[in-house]
Design a protein around this nucleic acid. Structure first.
Lengths: 187, 187
DNA sequence: CCAAATATGACACCGAGTGCCACAGATGGC
DNA sequence: GCCATCTGTGGCACTCGGTGTCATATTTGG
């Protein structure tokens, strides 16, 4: 039973993330040092790095274990389900979780360093998705193409959403993107 | 006429890049400091940064202005050409330039920091490609999806190529990927 | 030959991130 | 209640990538 230990740790993480986002909103990401964040949360720079591996990671809360989770969700789907349908369904659910953090996404998209970090995380997630698809019996190249296409769809959705100033419904966009981008080799 | 000045500059850049790649091959990217590279080329760390903006960039030679060039090549294509065909043709030519630097690509794909940098460059290129497609009259979301899909195809090709140990012909792979991934909304 | 532009080195500096150590407090068995 | 242990923390020194500044060659062009 991991109770108190974990709970305080989560609380401190949340505190740090909160303070950080405040400072980022005020001064911008690059103009805020890790020491600023740590001091604002009443601790030392050294301790900050005991809660987050990098300064960027303080922005990506739950998004952190994205790859692993998505891969598991794919594995949990009915095995005979069509791959593109499967990706659509899983990432659709994921997108709804993202929409909840609209301001974080805006910060990410407008900060090069964070944008880069997001690309990294997506890339890592893609690797795991390929593996998950391969486990369903898809040939490597096809799995790779499908995963890349799905990632591309999400990415395009994120940008279109920003382009329209957040007016459109993200889920609708996801559906449209997945329909439009369905690869030719997937029936 | 910019002759000698530019030529010596290019020579120094080449010298730096050469030394850097040697050291990277010996000790690895992370284990080589900028100071090591600079000293190996007989100059100071400060001067290194007068030739390359970052340590990563020493690996990406011509790849540097990728985005700009690709956008121009797209603009130079016959206006009535089908977008997917257009992307295929342009990136096909680009891929052949990449194949020439197989060892650099291997280094990049096996070094997280360089892989990240490549993602960045591709992302920047994608932005310009979207613009180039939009200039041809494509709606933003479609241009975005097409550009993202094309990037995904290249990425998948790079990985499949590594997967097979460089055995397959890259251009053939590109053709296959573009055929397989052709988005449904593009005729 | 001289003045302006350019290249370079040295130095100080910043910020992210790490290793190390010493110290506090909580935990758990006796 | 006591002692051993484990965990969290701060502080410090350090590495490395990257930048600003200045003083000093070296080159270029008139």
């Amino acid at each position: 039973m991991e109770g108190l230990r974990d709970r305080t740790r989560r609380a401190v993480r949340a505190e740090l993330a909160g303070r950080a986002l405040e400072l980022f909103a005020e001064r911008g990401f690059d103009e805020t040092t890790v020491d600023d964040i740590a001091r604002a949360a009443g601790m030392s720079k050294r301790s900050f790095f005991r809660y987050f591996p990098t300064k960027e990671d303080v922005v990506f809360g739950e998004i952190e274990t994205m790859g692993e989770q998505v891969a598991q969700e794919i594995a949990a789907r009915p095995p005979q389900e069509e791959p593109w349908q499967c990706l659509h369904a899983v990432l659709r659910g994921w997108e709804s979780r993202i929409s909840a953090q609209a301001d974080a996404m805006r910060l990410i998209e407008s900060t090069p360093a964070l944008r880069t970090r997001l690309l990294q995380k997506r890339d890592e997630a893609r690797t795991r998705i390929i593996q998950a698809l391969a486990d369903r019996g898809m040939p490597p190249l096809e799995a790779d193409l499908a995963a890349a296409a799905a990632g591309a769809a999400l990415d395009a959705v994120a940008r279109e959403w920003l382009r329209t100033g957040g007016a459109v419904d993200r889920l609708t966009l996801v559906d449209r993107a997945f329909t439009m981008l369905r690869p030719a080799f997937l029936t």
